[in-house]
Amino acid sequence: MARAHAAAWEAIGAELYFYAPSGSAAVADDFGGTECSSLAALYAAAELVDICAPTPHHLNLARSAVEAHRHVLCEKPLSRSATEGRQMLALAAAHRRLLMPAHVVRYFPQYAAAHQAVEDGRLGAMAVLRFHRSGATPQRPWFTDDNASGGLILDQLVHDIDQAVWMAGPVATVYASENRSERSGAQAQTAHVILTHRSGAVSHCRGHWGAEGTAFSFGFDIAGTLGTLTYDSRKNTGFEMSTTRGASPTEDGFMPDLGYFTNPYEVQARDFLQAAQTGSSPRTSAEEGLYAVQLALAAIRSVAEHRAIDVDDEGDHS
């Protein structure tokens, strides 16, 4: 994830500094940046901080960054727990720093176009929404460690939960089911989350971490009283090639193929930069990042308890 973010920062002309406890020389070299030997050195050198560390480290890193008076862009999910997320918001507020969760899907032009159409009322009132996302099971072990990442629901489905909220508003009820297959030795898991929004609209979010070789794909189908919108990354690619040389090795399956559209990580970086410099509101607020975490946690609880979870109204998250 750090590489996707670093490439975006490089593209918009930022001067890059890196820190990782295990060393960051390789990444720093690739992006012409400077490796820092400590967090303190990083904060001394950089004006803005982009946290790409595993989820359990978000709180402590965000704390030290805002204490060093740095604005923070933080990879999603904002935090492993709602309690940690609330602390991050409290710390950012106390130090008057920007805390922006990197819900990059909001910057994918397909989703942005759909959101604009919804906002413009072209589809009328939202009724039934479906979101899907598939990818290969991430290779770094912390992703598949529930204690660390929150698993498929908190790490992957949080994207589509956020989309459902972005399109159809706050949620009243969360239900989820999950299947982690331990059969045939192949690693594959899938989860379905059904959200009933306060407006009455219903959303289905389907996540999937598949075996090695699973292609990354995503899409949505949105139905409102005045019309529908559909997108599937496996279609509408604009470029298809067939070759007689057999199947070509694909990308790692964990990150999307950005195809021929504007790099969403770059748009996200610009939005963060502008918010940090001018005080404008970024596309995703810290509250919205926390809300997505809370809904994902409710989904995890629903899986554990085999029942629908009513989500308390904790103020306006729209």
Partner: peptide, 30 residues
């Protein structure tokens, strides 16, 4: 989870017009 948002203006329609049904099977398939 169901709703009657679509076609709510049609008085002939008294039932749900939209719905999502989730089923968990005995082997864990969802």
């Amino acid at each position: 989870a169901t709703n009657r948002i679509l076609h709510s203006e049609n008085s002939a329609v008294t039932n749900e017009t939209g719905g999502l049904v989730n089923v968990t099977y005995s082997d864990g398939t969802i």
